[in-house]
Design a binder for these strands. Structure first.
Lengths: 197, 197
DNA sequence: TCATTTTGATACCGATTGGTATCTTAAAAG
DNA sequence: CTTTTAAGATACCAATCGGTATCAAAATGA
């Protein structure tokens, strides 16, 4: 790894944490220089402006989450355990957070408005990727006779994502994992009793 | 209504919309002066600082939503229709929004961090009020033999709120009411088949 | 109607914002 | 080892931030 790449990686790492904790707009460049020990000159050498840094940071964290999740899903060999991988990822958001500050997708989705179209598009894409990964599990489950044929994979993906994201919001607000645990437990029961064969 | 009260109400109204659309921290005082046609001097006559304006605006919008919701709930005379009032409120968030910018509770819950403790407390209180209003419906439903005795009211409240808030997030991100409709429809089926007697 | 109080506009404050031009220094290429 | 290239520090910029002191005008109470 070249020294400039080390610097860029360090900026991205610290900026990602700050963006996810304080918010993207609310994180200033001086916040990032403080966290990295670098100067603005160094940061602007690697990023055209703050907006591209925001976008690169968001894309990188979402990509790494999806890669990690995909690995875990591929290690399981039945529909139930693959779906439970998704739930367990969210359950660990509070107790053993993958990244501090809650779910990056939720945070960006709530923060962006019509003045952040590029970042909003990236969040839309991330949501689509998340959806499809759940839908794929359901569709594969049908072909392997592990999922009821009447099950609508789009509905399952929408309900799972919305409930989990809402659960993260509630748990983060209450500084407690109680809500996300209730929600995950409820979804597990739903999957076992209504989705799986 | 005294003229100063008119001014204060106008500031609160415009600020609430701005806060809920652009975010609290990201809304500047000049945004508010532009929207109201007033000056900073006028605004700071009625609000000690920006933070108290944020808190007053959040409390007022949440209070008005809860009042409106309570009215509709009290007009219904069975558990099913009372619960459906909550769902219908969220379903109309996209098509016929009570306030632009999504759910104020979700927005504040996601935006606040440990540097906004007062606003965070108000959001925690609002969530508690929302929870209790749902739990009350379930408990009353049990005494009127309309809800299964095994149903856990805390679980119902947590699942309903998390799923609805997540659905709002998804629909707002996609500029489409598809997700919130899927979610509301799913929750209605769940209530009818698993909660009610 | 008149005196008093309150309200809101003006002009300002220091601090911070994102961003840039410049120059030294350090790393990479030969 | 030397030359060339690129990286990062410094110092600056105009614009904007939240906030305030002051004063004229308008609303209020007697």
């Amino acid at each position: 790894m070249r020294s400039s790449e080390i610097t860029k990686a360090k900026v991205l790492k610290e900026a990602t944490t700050l963006f996810n904790t304080k918010g993207y707009k609310s994180t200033s460049l001086s916040d990032i220089t403080d966290a990295t020990g670098l100067t603005k000159g160094a940061i602007y050498r690697h990023f055209e402006n703050k907006e591209t840094l925001e976008i690169e940071a968001f894309q990188k964290i979402m990509q790494s989450i999806f890669i990690e999740l995909s690995k875990k899903i591929s290690l399981e060999n039945n529909t139930r355990d693959k779906l439970f991988c998704v739930l367990n990822l969210f359950q660990s958001y509070i107790t053993d957070p993958f990244i501090v500050g809650g779910c990056p997708l939720l945070n960006v989705a709530v923060e962006v408005d019509d003045t952040n179209m590029e970042l909003k598009q990236k969040a839309q894409q991330a949501l689509a990727v998340f959806r499809h990964s759940i839908e794929k599990i359901i569709i594969n489950g049908k072909t392997h006779k592990q999922v009821r044929n009447l099950v609508n994979e789009k509905l399952v993906a929408t309900v799972l994502i919305s409930t989990l994201e809402g659960g993260i919001m509630m748990s983060k607000l209450q500084n407690s994992n109680a809500d996300i645990e209730i929600v995950v437990n409820h979804l597990k029961n739903w999957i076992v009793s209504d989705i799986l064969l």
